[in-house]
Amino acid sequence: MTENSKRREFLKLGMGGAVLAGAAAAVALSAQKAVAQSAENSLLRTVIDRGHLIVGTGSTNAPWHFEDEAGKLVGMDITMAKILAKGLFDDETKVEFVLQDPAQRIPNIVTGKVDITIQFMTMSANRAQLVAFPRPYYVEGVSLLSSPNGKMKSFEELTAGGANTRISILQNVGAEEAVHKVLPEAQVMQIDTQANVIAALEAGRVDGAAVDLSTVKWLVARNPEKYADSGFAWESMLYGAALRQGDPDWLNFVSTTFEIAMFGNDTALYDAAFLEYFGTKVPDRKTGFPSH
């Protein structure tokens, strides 16, 4: 091979290499573009670019979302928002809370006023037609709050009272049946607000107040001299966050982050909140078979 032909061969090789490299770069670029496109429509990308999360919630229902004595927004819902912020930015404070009425929970998601609603929302098939639910973060139930000074304190005593047992409950479709499911003979008193349902117990007008299990736990933990837990809950329901439909990346991110906070390697925030707001420790997690 002459010197010239050698050089030509070398140039050919070089050109081939350049073409190959160019093609590879083009493939890499278009792949990058494709990733960017799929994520561009997702709230996940929007939230990360914005640098903080916008959460719709309330401020008037302990232990879910309420202002503590220092005027700071706290509660189980607020903790779930912080868990998300920690997952997104490694900084649990990067949350903006938009206070909303319970009636605004779905409209504010649909119109894009908030990235996610975390406001003691019961997951139901009806609602799932309008919004997407990530995995639930609490199993709520109906429970009976009683008075430590009353003559009927435990669930057994309330049952034994028969037709003499008086129970207050929030006015609602099926409220009477809900009570009669476990206390078939009890007298049911339907009252307008949750706070007044409890006020009836304090006033001695009823022997037990049928309220959310979380409310019972919260009140008994804070005021054991005023309230007692009758020790029975029924009618379980799932509490979940809600977000817009048609955004699998965002939905999956929230589910995964909640999953990790409840069962994975980063459970400190969830555990502390659970203990503080419901008065009990989270049951021990088992390693090995993923049973949750």
Partner: peptide
């Protein structure tokens, strides 16, 4: 205005009731 989550006097009242469960 409390319906849009603005914390006015009525909503502030609801916030305290939400914490203490003593409405009257």
């Amino acid at each position: 205005v409390s319906l849009l989550g603005v914390v006015d006097l009525m909503q502030a009242i609801n916030q305290v009731i939400g914490r203490t469960y003593e409405p009257m």
